[in-house]
Every structure is written in structure tokens, then in C-alpha cells.
Design a binder for these strands. Structure first.
Lengths: 182, 182, 182, 182
DNA sequence: TATGAATGAGTCTTCATTCAT
DNA sequence: AATGAATGAAGACTCATTCAT
């Protein structure tokens, strides 16, 4: 992928994350290129959104790698995962809102891979007797994504401090809001 | 508010909840009226979305009332709140995505009222020594909304069973995913 | 013609005279009736405009009668005509702008009658050696209408005093702007 | 101003002058472009009409310049003014009918400049003892415009010959319709 | 009869996309 | 390769008109 294209994608992501309905015109302007150039790189809005989706998947997989979620204590792995994924919360939120993405096989496969890895982590925790069995891995996956995205918005809105966001998500997800847990 | 108008709103909500980008034409068709009639009741798409926002606030407040969140054991109050709010999860999710609404003062006031009531519940739980102090009421509010909306999507996608949704949210929010809690 | 209908027409004229593009809705509101009632009286906008045209013609003919333009000194007859027609200046201006009217035979005939009478006055003045021959009666007709309509606007805009308007038109039309004429 | 834009304006003027209610579609077609292109140059009908208004002012000022109305014999200056303004009669008539324009400050200023120059000519004639004092410059201005616009219509309707129009206006305005003037 | 409600038709406007330079 | 200009398609909106009460 050329650097130009990557930069274009990042600019588009930065805008679409905030305004999911931004027009190609606005995206092009935000990226500092003309509409036509944007179209040259991504023939059609769908292509752009798909590229964004693939970029998101790629980034997410990189973060899963970086978090080494397959290794060590599942609890710590969840914490590392949250810590790593937090910077991508806006991106995640955008992709979450674009449910149209799920019609693209490539995209489905990508998310299936990610879901599988995260679910596997939760299953591993359950098998080790650490995580509750009555909350399904699929639900925990979705809840994790949702809390990460939400915490990103909360940081933007000034409702929680940036440095607290990972802890807020981790503590809530792992320990819930009730007192009495170490 | 006339019954016609209310019905129109409900039909619009039912559609927009599933397809946030539905055109006025599609909305009108879904409601069984002509575009022009839809426009007569809601002069412009913005007016419709704003009315939906107000309806969402009204419904949410009714559900808070029905859940009697100011009364009794905070833990049980949270469970009642979730139970009550769950049917509106799709609606909530839609309004969540309409960042246009954040510019309407009336809307802000409405959500501020709701946030205040829900936050008060969390504070009450904290003051009774039941809820953790290190998770702020504001964050718990947002997390609650996010989990409710997410569970709605999960039900739609068949990831969790409708009858489980409230429990999934409640258990996760209250107790977290770690084992060992009664 | 019923009184209701006549009042409706007058109200419509009063509005359309100022805003030629006023919608049926605005006209109905200005007349204090519902759109439907307006449509009952005048089936369609064209019917209304045509009725206005006929009313205008009728009024104009009444004023020509009142001015007795066929009698006496042509110069004085012109002055009387202007004096009489002045109150209808707004009406005249509206009809002037609606050149679509000229597709209705009834209307054409009416205006032809009026034009004929006014032209006859000018011809009479020419034949008596009072009016110039190099300005055709047809042109003088049009100029007369235009000056009356314009003076009406000038009065509305405060550019000339209401009591001066007839004189301004009469003096200009009859004597022109050069000094030296008694 | 680009040539394209200017050409577009002229085409629009040519059509709107004849049919003041022409739709944007008709205008675009008359100009040989698509509606979208017309909208790109003039975002909205208002913008187009306003641009036409400004073009009208500009043209009128150029004609005042060409007529050198500030120089020489006021009577001849009036004749030159009429001669020059006559080709724009249709344009003038159109702008006259657009009462929407009266709300645009830029427009008011432009017409105020023009009115001032024309009024100054009439005042100059009065001060030289050539023009009557009992007809105010403001009224003469309006009468001049009205007669020019009317003569344009008369030419279109075949009521007066094109080559006679300037003379008809000039003679009537300057000398009135009474015989006996040289 | 008068009216509030409903609507089909047509206009305005914007978008994503393509083209000529 | 990049861009300003152009455009077809589609959505938003408004109007005159009709209908049921």
C-alpha cells in the first residue's frame, strides 16, 4: 500500500469516525485532495469504506498480536488487549456503526478471525475456571468492543480522563460494578 | 400529540432503528402514508429525527419511572432498570448514532435529566457501600446505555437469546465476568 | 356574485398585488379561510387569477364610466381617468404582471374593450389637435397604465405623497418634464 | 467572473426576462447545461436571481457611463440615457418584478447608486431651469424606469416598432403628450 | 357548506461519479 | 497523476388539489 493511500485512509478514518455520514467532498477536503483524486484511489464510496474496514481489521489484528492475547494469564491478557485496543476506539466505533460492511466476504472473514481470537481468550479463561460460564464468549466479545468504543467517546466528551479509560473498561468488564472483589 | 402522529413516529422509529439511513420515501412507505403527509407532520427530516429524539427521552423517562429506580435496593433497582430499558434498546442505539441531536438544547436537557436520575442511582449504591467508588457514575451511565444497545444488536444478530439479554447486561454490569461472586 | 366570493377576491387581490407568487395557502390564510374553501370558490389557481382578472376589468370599466372619458375636453377626461384609476393602481400592477391572462378569450375581450375606450380618448384628443400625433394611442395606453401602477408603488414606498400621485402622473403624461408649458 | 459563468447568467437572463417563473430545469436546459452544473455555479435559485440582480446593476451603471449622463445638456443626456438603457428594458422589467431582491443590501446599494446618478441628472436639469420643479427627481426616476420597461414589452407585443421605442419614451417623458411643443 | 387531513406531481438540491485537460 | 468542471441519479421538499368528515 502506497504511503499516499495510507495517509488518505487515515484522514478519512479520522473524519468518518466523527461524522459517519460525511460526504466524499468533505472527506476529500479533509484529506487535502480533490474529489477526483480520492476517487482515483478508491473507486467509489463503498471501496473507501471497505478499505477502511480492512485497515481496521489489520490494525486490530496487529493489536491482538501486540497484546499477545493467546499467552499467559487470561485476566492479564484481557487487560493487555484493552490497553492495546483503546487507541483504536474511534475506529472501532466507526466500523461498528457500518453494519453494511458485513456484506463483504473479505470483511466477514477478517472479523470472524478477530472474533475467534478474542472469543478463544474468553473460552480459555472459562476453561481455567477464571471467567463465568453464564456469560457467553460471543456476548463478552461484543460487550468488550462496545465498552472500548464508549470509553473513547467518554474521553472525547471529557467524561473520563484519557489515562483512566483502559482501567474503567477493564475493571467494569472483569469485576463489574459491585464492591467486594479484590 | 395526536394518535396519528404518534403512530407515524413509532413506524419511523421501527424503520430507522434498523436502517438509520432510510430515505423519507422509505419511511413514508413503511408508515403507510405519502411523502407529503409525512412532511406535513414533520417538516423536514431534521424535525422527524428531533421528534424521535424527544419520543426516546419520553419513553426512557417512563421506563425509569416504571423501574422505580429511586426506590429500594440499588442493585435490584439497576436490574429493574435494565429489564425495563431493554425493549427500547434499538431505539436507544439509533438515537446514539444521530450526533446531529447533540445540538438541540431540548434534547440535551432531556438526556441530562435522565443521566442525572441514573447517576443518582449509581451514587446511591456507592453511598450504601454496594457499588465501587473507582468507577464513576458518569461512566457507569454510559456503560449501561452501551451494553443495553449492544445487547439489542446481539439479539437481532442472533448472538444472544432475547430472554437472556437483560440478564447478560445485568450480570456483566453488576458482577463483571470474573467467577467467584455469589 | 356572492359577497363571500367578492370578499375573497378582494383579499386575494390585496395579497397578490404585493406578492405575485403567493401560494394558495398564503392566499387562503390572508383571506381567513382554509385552502379547501378557497378551492371550493375557485377551482384551481387559474380560476382564481382569471376571476381576479375579470374583477379588474369590471372595476376598470366602472372607473372609465365614472370618469366619463367619452365626454368633454379630452385633457380633462384624461385627468379624470387618472384620478379614478389611481386607487386601483395595485390591482392594475398585478394584472399587468400576469401576462398569462392573455390566453383567456374573455380576458382578452375585456382588455380589448378597455384599451379601445382609452385609445379612443387619445384618438379624440389627437383629432381635436390637442394630443401629439407622433405618440400612438396604443403606446399612450400602455404608458398610462405603467405610470399609474408605478405611482402606486411610489406611494407605498413613500417616494411620493398619496395626494400628489394623480397629479404626478397627469402632469408627466400630459405635459412631460420640460418647463415652459402652462 | 469566468466567461462560463457570465454566459450562464446571460442565458438565464434571456429566459427569465421572458418567463419569470421558469424552473431551474428550464433555465439549465436553455443554457445548455445540466441542472447540477447550474447549481454548482449558483447554489440555489436565490443565488442565481441575486447574481442576475448584480449583473443588472453592473450593466445599468455601464450604460449610465456610456450615456455620459453627467455631461452636457441635460435634455440630451436624458435622450442618451434612454437610448442606452433601452436594450436592457427586458432585463430591467424582470428585476423590477423580483421583489425578493429588495431584501439584499448589496442590491439596495447598487440601485441607490444608480438612482442617485439619475436623480442628479434630473436635479441638474431643474437647476438649469430646463425641467419642471413640480415633478420630483425621485418620481422622474421611477417613471423613466417604468416607461423603459413598458416600451420593451410593447416592442415584444408588436405594439411599437423597435426603432421607435427610444423616441416614444423620450418624447413622452420630456415633452408629454400635449401638442404645441417644438 | 366548511374544513383538517391526505396526496400526486413537480421542483429544488445534493450526492457520488466521470470526463477533459 | 491530479484536478476543475460536468453530470445522472436520487433524495428532500412544496405546491395545488382532492377527499372524508
Amino acid at each position: 500500500m502506497s504511503l499516499d493511500r495510507e495517509q488518505l485512509l487515515r484522514d478519512a478514518a479520522a473524519l468518518l469516525t466523527r461524522r459517519a455520514t460525511a460526504s466524499m467532498d468533505q472527506i476529500a477536503k479533509a484529506a487535502g485532495v480533490s474529489r477526483a483524486t480520492l476517487h482515483r484511489h478508491f473507486p467509489g464510496r463503498d471501496a473507501l469504506v471497505r478499505a477502511l474496514g480492512m485497515l481496521g481489521i489489520q490494525q486490530m489484528e496487529e493489536r491482538l498480536d501486540a497484546a499477545r492475547i493467546e499467552e499467559g494469564d487470561p485476566i492479564e491478557a484481557v487487560r493487555r488487549l484493552i490497553e492495546q485496543a483503546m487507541p483504536a476506539s474511534g475506529f472501532l466505533a466507526f466500523l461498528y456503526g457500518e453494519n453494511q460492511l458485513y456484506d463483504v466476504p473479505e470483511m466477514d472473514e477478517g472479523w470472524a478471525r478477530i472474533d475467534e481470537r478474542v472469543s478463544a481468550l474468553f473460552r480459555r479463561g472459562q476453561e481455567q475456571g477464571l471467567f463465568r460460564y453464564d456469560l457467553t464468549p460471543a456476548w463478552l466479545c461484543e460487550a468488550l468492543y462496545a465498552l472500548i468504543a464508549t470509553s473513547g467517546w467518554c474521553v472525547q466528551d471529557g467524561k473520563i480522563a484519557p489515562r483512566d479509560s483502559a482501567r474503567m473498561v477493564g475493571e467494569l468488564l472483569l469485576g463489574g460494578m459491585l464492591r467486594g472483589r479484590s
